[in-house]
């Protein structure tokens, strides 16, 4: 059995629509996989279906041998899938600290407090722990959203376009930090990205998505850098 698998997954926002048109996808424990595709190909829909926000009309989702197809979002989260959605979705009115606490209090098996390491990964969060999260910069909010997910000690982390709208230096910082964390803890990451630099620096495998299906898989991540034709096929308009 694989760590995570999606089998012939079909889902959409309305009854008849098929944004996901039969996805077959596997993840092994400890892998970091980049999911790449143009806008509107179903990447975010795939993540929203995994996390239980969209009910699939058919197919199956298995995570660590547990069927999580159409499970409620909080069940999925408690099963060990952390989610950093597009747009970060931090709690603007809450302080940095309260945002991180939100990551812990939904998990009955965790202590209801923020672990110390949470403030050491991105030091800026420690400096601003009492500050209202809505006043942080985009990059800081992204860092906050990632740590908030990690505080819940997931074994699979879903990252949806963490580079979007963020200055390159922070993107790079996020990339190297995540790679380090994954290497140390064995965290499995599914990264949805259009930023090739981040994908290359972080992922060790890459899959391409088109029209709601996984259409190609690349084991050698360096091809993203060298194979112009490949990149052009799945990313250019």
């Amino acid at each position: 059995m694989s760590f995570f698998s999606a089998r012939n997954l079909v889902a959409g926002y309305q009854k008849e629509s098929r944004v996901l048109n039969g996805i077959d996808f596997e993840l092994d424990q400890g892998e970091i996989v980049a999911l790449i595709g143009r806008n509107g190909m179903g990447k975010t829909t795939f993540l929203e279906t995994i996390t239980g926000h969209i009910a699939p009309s058919s197919g199956m989702l298995l995570f660590r041998d547990v069927d999580i197809t159409a499970a409620q979002p909080y069940i999925v989260a408690r099963a060990g899938i952390g989610y950093v959605p597009q747009g970060r979705e931090i709690f603007n009115e809450f302080s940095v600290e309260q945002n991180l606490l939100m990551g812990a209090i939904g998990k009955p098996e965790l202590a209801n407090k923020i672990p110390d390491w949470a403030f050491t990964i991105f030091p800026v969060l420690a400096e601003r722990r009492k500050q209202r999260a809505g006043t942080l910069s985009g990059g800081q909010q992204q860092q906050l959203a990632i740590i908030r997910a990690l505080v819940g000690s997931p074994s699979l982390l879903l990252l949806d376009e963490p580079s979007e709208g963020i200055q390159p230096s922070i993107v790079q910082n996020i990339g190297t930090t995540m790679a380090k964390i994954a290497a140390e803890s064995g965290l499995t990451i599914l990264l949805v990205e259009q930023n090739l630099e981040l994908a290359i620096s972080l992922a060790n495998r890459c899959v391409f998505m088109e029209n709601g299906r996984i259409v190609e898989e690349v084991e050698d991540i360096s091809r993203l850098r060298n194979d112009q034709e490949l990149v052009h096929r799945y990313l250019s308009a």
Binding site: H53, P73, R78, P85, E89, F91, E93, G106
Partner: peptide, 19 residues
């Protein structure tokens, strides 16, 4: 805090494990 979090952003609160 959890209750206020649910009000502020229901979907995100759920994805953090809050029922």
């Amino acid at each position: 805090l959890a209750a206020r979090g649910v009000i502020a952003n229901r979907a995100m609160a759920a994805s953090l494990g809050i029922n």
